[in-house]
Amino acid sequence: MIDNKDYVLTIDGLKTYFEVDHSVVKAVDDVSLKIERGKTLAIVGESGCGKSVTAYSILKLIQKPGKIIGGKIVLYPSNGKAINISELNERSELLYHVRGGYISMIFQEPMTALSPVHTIGNQICEAVLLHSKTKISRKCAEEMAVEMLNKAGMPNSQARIRQYPHEISGGMRQRAVIAMAMITNPELLIADEPTTALDVTIQAQIIELMKKLQNEYRTAIMLITHDFGVVAQTADEVAVMYLGNIVEQASVREIIKNPMHPYTIALLGSLPGIGRIGKRLAPVRGSVPDPLRRPQGCTFHPRCEYAEKGLCDVGLIPGLEEVINGHKVACRRVKEIRKNGK
């Protein structure tokens, strides 16, 4: 707990559950995270492991049948008092400024963030006018929008602001969404699979753009992805999720070069295309279990290469423990795995 890093957001013991057919899906179960100011934290994991629910929970955007059951989320703006988001009232003005002001969010499908019936320019201006701390004129907001679109690499932005989202390409839409997210100069940008729907060439451009803006504005980024390539190229810190829990967390260097949790090791072994031609891959066996039937003990044990009967399939979920400096792993056999190598 005692470290002298400058955090912009801390999450402590977050639990978000969904009630489906009288049973409970523990979409996020006791997740704790800290995001450093100006840095990128990547959250990786396969479909359904709780990445998006974690993100939505930060902004209290969980809808029925979902509910945040517990946990504390605190935002530390660079100037101003800490904001305990978890205790904010749904109708409080502060929560309103947290969403889209202090914290911006971008999504996999840019159309989720854009309204089809308003021009790009109007939507970006709206964001400025709603969240600006000082009073500004419409004209001024429009100038800011054009400038931000320029920064976001949108050609002809003066003309583009009069266009509707459906009139521009997917890559350009994502640029518009990024401009809209960054124009309020947020403390934290949550990006939920921002490049998954894009071609690699456009993805590379968007990654470069996000890095450039991050440097300029010193924004922290929480990047949600299932692509370890994107992680390696963007993240400072990485959290790997499986079935609603963080199973491993460390610096990007540690995760890529020295993965310790069997799930992380297996995920990296599943990646195609790195010097393996015609050779078989080494994937995780089986598939993610039904979230309603979470296995006892370590939830990963039915798919785990290293699982030991009587140890891994009983009791509570193993907790996340620091193994070496800043490298945390939730695995009962981590010591043996480290000793015997992979």
Binding site: V200, Q203, A204, Q205, A232, R253, I256, K257
Partner: peptide, 16 residues
């Protein structure tokens, strides 16, 4: 050049 490799020694250097 646009492929992001899961390898810290190969930096993304997209040219397009």
């Amino acid at each position: 050049s646009a492929i992001p490799y899961p390898d810290l020694d190969i930096k993304l250097n997209a040219v397009l």
